[in-house]
């Protein structure tokens, strides 16, 4: 990088972000030049403010690794991936990928997926509002139309598939479940949605991830059921439909005209 011109905001900004750089030129205080400690207030404020934003976005990750380690990891993230927008509620999307490649956290191979789940929760919290479909909308469908029903996902809906017990790991570190050793260390899929005021996290039964992915992608109920069965032979359609209704994860339904309709 070229050295920024002395006395400019470019130089001030660079020195704020890089603790190794000297203080910018042209600064002073009433009692002398080179007010290093005064400049340090700004430097610390930038750092602490962004650390605070990440720590409130990824509280379970912080609880898992402890405050010191989180501070180290988040500081590294901030230096390579500073916010590009003043809207900090959208800051941290790249954090999970960063965690996945963070050398010192390599022993926690599952940590990045916990970060992905927390990011999804934050996105769901701020997503657009929409009234979810009531159970009666499904009950009212003619049985023969069911297979061609196409659903519109709630704007807050997201799905996560993990080779680790991500939902349990998250729940235990978000005071949703008591903290305990996880005996059954199997992969978990999660559905994250905020149909009303609260963000909900559902642990999905086998095949349901494929089912909900297909539905969100615009496949009909019939096609999605087939997709899920193909992906997971012991896919339980009843359980998936029950979850679909309970999670209130979809907002609209229409029956597609099939090409062979007479």
């Amino acid at each position: 990088m070229m050295n920024p011109e002395p006395g400019t905001q470019a130089q001030f900004a660079a020195a704020l972000r890089e603790a190794d750089l000297p203080m910018p030129q042209g600064l002073c205080a009433w009692n002398g030049p080179d007010p290093a400690r005064r400049f340090e207030v700004y430097r610390n404020n930038v750092r602490q403010g962004l650390l605070g934003a990440l720590s409130s976005r990824f509280p379970a990750v912080e609880r898992i690794v402890g405050r010191d380690f989180f501070t180290l990891m988040a500081s590294e993230f901030i230096s390579v991936n500073p916010p590009r927008s003043p809207v900090l509620l959208a800051y941290g999307e790249a954090f999970a990928d960063f965690v996945a490649h963070f050398e010192a956290a390599r022993s926690l191979v599952w940590l990045a997926d916990v970060a992905r789940l927390e990011w999804a929760r934050g996105q769901a919290y701020h997503a657009a509002d929409a009234e979810p479909l009531a159970a009666t909308a499904f009950a009212a469908l003619a049985p023969e139309a069911l297979g061609d029903a196409v659903l519109t996902p709630h704007p807050s809906l997201s799905l996560l598939s993990s080779p680790f017990p991500v939902a349990t790991l998250w729940a235990m570190n978000a005071d949703e479940m008591p903290l305990a050793p996880i005996a059954d260390w199997s992969g978990e899929d999660a559905l994250i949605v905020r149909p009303h005021g609260l963000v909900r996290v559902y642990r999905l039964p086998p095949g349901a991830h494929a089912f909900f992915s297909a539905l969100s992608g615009g496949e009909s109920l019939g096609e999605s059921a087939e997709t899920a069965l193909a992906a997971m032979p012991d896919f339980d359609l009843t359980a998936a439909l029950a979850l679909l209704i309970e999670a209130e994860a979809f907002i609209a339904l229409h029956v597609r005209e099939t090409s062979d309709a007479r």
Binding site: E62, I64, D68, F70, L108, L111, D184, Y202, R203
Partner: peptide
């Protein structure tokens, strides 16, 4: 720096890929 926090409590993968109790996680 080594991760501290709660990770040691939970990092006890054992029992292989046994059946996991399914259902919505409490929220």
């Amino acid at each position: 720096y080594v991760p501290a926090g709660t990770c040691e409590t939970m990092m006890t993968p054992k029992g292989g890929h046994g059946s996991l109790k399914q259902g919505p996680a409490p929220m």
